[in-house]
Nucleic acid binder design. Structure first.
Length: 513
DNA sequence: GTTTAGAACTCTAGAACTGC
DNA sequence: GCAGTTCTAGAGTTCTAAAC
């Protein structure tokens, strides 16, 4: 995947870094004029004149334009729009506008506009976006597009045209999740320019394989987040006009382990600096959305601790919940594999898997917990028989049905429920019967430390030192641990020490092998 | 089970434009 | 100059799923 923006930044049409907003940019020739918004000062003056005279003579408009540094034609346009909007308001919202209509009953589009825009935008999509192809490949969304999709219709933004049908039960689009590479590229551009032009977004879409609309959404969300966080924490205000200043600590590292200062609470071990699966030995990178705060957690975030950037700063992030991450594909494969064997892996299995794929044990635990939780919901829902969606992308095996195309558990979502209930529900029941079997499951969950905040697991009362430990458990579940692991003495099977020993051993095993 | 981040979305305002 | 349209920004909402 070519890095699209390293070169863009030097291209003449690319907005200057210190002019993040189009209105502030000294834009070079572009196919389209950058969007402009009048400044508060200009608007105040314009409104002032408008209040006095809705139809000011040309001399007044020209003088005002000169005074405000605007073009006369812009002032003219503003007065036209202002008159139109005030007239509209006076009419008390009786104007039939597509904007005011419910989304599920979209109005007939303007007869002259539909063919032109519909085709124009879909041509653009075909070339640059190819979203239908993407959906067809990866999600149920494509199948939701009726074959008799009314080509003469769209409502609102053309990119959203396929959300609406004349029947009002069109499901919401399957949520797009960006990959780490995509997020990297998005952040690169955002750091250079939070307001990329349409062309830039289109190029980025084509470059990183995202829908154009998703990219637009992403930038909108990021700007909104940045603004909210800035408002919530004025001390964190970046240097005005310097979007780059919003990312003082942008580097985030994928680390399968807590950083040296905060190793896994159950291990007094220094974290490995590399992930075994990385041939180059570089530090494993976490999903780019992961903040560096992973290494320093605290219970609850406070909005006042949010930084002014969508990605936070190191200082504020230290009080934040870690950013949500997604398993990498190879991690997901390993998780899937284990889930196909058991939905309730033991702590040993989870630890081994965590080490194997370079994940936190807590994350692995959470992943399984969430999956089982979703499965329960799913099973419940299936029982009520309110499931009619067709999730072709999920396949028919019990595991794949529970994993969305983005690698996250997905059972009960409104947009991803399944149709193959007879099979899926049964298979889930098998897992559930196994997983919800009471104390063992609870124990397994309880002893799993959450990263960072993980309290030491309570000394188990279920293990009696006089009892012979159930070694068969390891055999039954194909424990990946070495033989000597299964020969841990009875006395070591108690509380924290057991887990520590297990993790130590597994870590040792991993390093040795 | 609950909380929360983030993606997707709706809705609205307004800047710019076209055709009459 | 007006009506109508296109397109985008931004605020706010909904929903999913990771984290707790």
């Amino acid at each position: 995947m070519p890095p699209p923006f390293d070169s863009w930044a030097s291209e003449p049409q690319f907005p200057a870094i210190h002019n993040p907003h189009p209105s502030l940019q000294s834009s070079a020739p572009q196919s389209k004029k950058p969007r402009h918004r009048h400044s508060p000062h200009q608007l105040a003056a314009l409104n002032d004149l408008f209040d006095r005279n809705e139809h000011p003579p040309l001399e007044q408009r020209t003088a005002l334009a000169d005074r405000l540094g605007m073009e006369t034609k812009t002032v003219n346009a503003w007065f036209q729009n202002k008159r139109a909007s005030s007239k509209k308001r006076v009419r008390g919202g009786t104007v039939a506008s597509y904007e005011s209509q419910p989304i599920n009953t979209p109005p007939a589009p303007h007869p002259s506009s539909v063919p032109h825009d519909f085709h124009r935008n879909h041509d653009m999509d075909d070339i640059l976006d190819d979203e239908y192809a993407f959906d067809t490949q990866h999600s149920r969304s494509a199948s939701a597009i009726p074959s008799d999709y009314p080509s003469s219709f769209y409502a609102g933004h053309p990119d959203q045209a396929h959300f609406y049908t004349e029947s009002d039960n069109m499901p919401r689009r399957m949520r797009m999740r960006t990959s780490s590479e995509q997020t990297d590229e998005l952040k690169k551009l955002y750091s250079i320019n939070p307001h990329p032009t349409t062309e830039q977004r289109q190029m980025l879409a084509a470059s990183i394989g995202m829908r154009y609309q998703s990219i637009t959404n992403w930038f909108q969300n990021q700007r909104s987040l940045a603004k909210k966080r800035k408002e919530g924490d004025p001390e964190q205000s970046p240097i005005l006009g310097s979007p780059r200043a919003e990312y003082p600590h942008e580097t985030r590292h994928y680390s399968a382990f807590p950083p040296p200062s905060h190793p896994h609470p159950s291990l007094g071990l220094p974290p490995p600096s590399t992930h075994p699966s990385l041939a180059n030995g570089s530090v494993m990178r976490r999903s780019p959305s992961i903040s560096s705060s992973m290494e320093d957690r605290s219970p609850r975030r406070s909005s006042s601790h949010r930084s002014s950037t969508p990605y936070g700063s190191l200082a504020s992030a230290s009080f934040n919940r870690p950013r949500r991450s997604r398993p990498e594909p190879y991690q997901l494969d390993a998780l899937k594999e284990l889930f196909s064997k058991t939905s309730t892996p033991t702590i040993e299995e989870r630890s081994a898997l965590a080490l194997e794929v370079g994940m936190d044990v807590g994350k692995v635990t959470n992943w399984f917990r969430n999956l089982r939780q979703m499965a329960r919901k799913r099973a419940k829902k299936s029982g009520s028989g309110d499931d009619e969606d067709d999730d072709s992308f999920m396949g028919r095996d019990p595991y794949s049905a529970s994993i969305s195309r983005f690698g996250t558990p997905s059972f009960g979502s409104s947009s991803s429920s399944m149709n193959d209930d007879s099979i899926d529900a049964d298979d889930y029941d098998v897992h559930l019967a196994h997983s919800d079997n009471g104390s063992e499951d609870e124990y397994q969950e309880a002893v799993t430390p959450s990263p960072g905040t993980s309290p030491s697991p309570p000394p188990t009362t279920s293990v009696d030192s006089s009892r012979t430990p159930d070694y068969s458990r390891f055999e039954r579940r194909n424990s990946p641990y070495p033989v000597q692991f299964d020969k841990v003495t009875v006395n070591q099977f108690s509380g924290v020490k057991v887990e520590d020993a297990l993790l130590l051993l597994s870590f040792h095993h991993h390093i040795v092998h």
